[in-house]
């Protein structure tokens, strides 16, 4: 079983060759870091004058978690499943000696790993931008022990429901616009709902509540909710999709 999953993992990565998944994984964090960089340069270092690089990190984290991460989730899940829709791949995979749930699990895992990779790249690019700014004369207290890495584990659990929902929607719906539109709409809604007491009803706010909310109990609640809901969606969908007939 393990060797089957390793093989499936390898073939899913092969399918992503020339699909621009890696390019998107680089461009999304790069756009956030680029924006932050420009804000510092434009304000002649005002952003880092009070709290040093911590405020720079906070700005990058806020932009990444509030805006780019949920959009990236919609993008990568659409891409991972869109390959099958585009090339009649479901039919191809259905003629292989594997169960549909196994493909679902591997694709879900790949989407999750891509989100992790993009977040790690976000950390590396932010660090690189700090080094670059220091080299060109922006001086502030050095801080690479940013809250970003501390938050990463929490985010990867709390964001499970949106990764899984994006995965299920893009698995079921052929038109790539639909999962992308849902991602954009829910991201915009989440920026408002995250500040209200109703955040609990919107899974798109869980990763924000787990990191950006100052209350520790809210952080824990969001992580627990995200982990549990994400796993339920994952297991239930894998079970239900396994019964699906392949028409395409």
């Amino acid at each position: 079983m393990i060797s089957l999953f390793i093989n499936l993992f390898a073939i899913e990565l092969t399918k992503l060759k020339r699909s621009q998944a890696l390019l998107m994984t680089l461009l999304c964090p790069l756009s956030v870091v680029g924006l932050q960089f420009l804000m510092v340069v434009e304000g002649s270092g005002e952003l880092i004058s009070d709290k040093g690089w911590d405020s720079y990190w906070y700005g990058a984290i806020s932009l990444w978690y509030m805006l780019m991460l949920p959009l990236y989730v919609a993008l990568i899940t659409s891409l991972v499943n869109g390959i099958e829709h585009k090339h009649n791949g479901w039919r191809f995979m259905a003629t292989m000696p594997i169960q549909q749930w196994q493909i679902f699990v591997v694709k879900g895992l790949i989407s999750w790993l891509f989100v992790l990779l993009a977040s790690l790249l976000m950390y590396l690019l932010t660090s690189a931008s700090i080094i670059l700014m220091m080299l060109i004369g922006y001086d502030a207290e050095v801080s690479f022990t940013s809250p970003f890495l501390l938050h990463l584990a929490k985010v990867m659990v709390a964001a499970l429901p949106i990764i899984m929902m994006g995965h299920v929607i893009s698995w079921r719906i052929k038109n790539i616009i639909f999962p992308l539109a849902i991602g954009v709409i829910m991201t915009i809604i989440a920026t408002t709902v995250a500040r209200s007491k109703y955040w609990i009803y919107d899974p798109w706010t869980y990763h924000l509540a787990a990191t950006l909310n100052p209350k520790a109990e809210v952080n824990i609640q969001a992580i627990a909710l995200g982990g549990a809901l994400g796993l339920i969606i994952f297991v239930l969908s894998a079970w239900l999709l396994n019964k699906r007939e392949v028409y395409s």
Binding site: K15, K17, R18, I83, H87, R91
Partner: peptide, 15 residues
């Protein structure tokens, strides 16, 4: 059902 963006050998490597 062919993954058009792959090469012939990459495609066969899937099966």
């Amino acid at each position: 059902a062919l993954y058009q963006h792959l090469t012939a050998s990459e495609y066969l490597s899937l099966s």
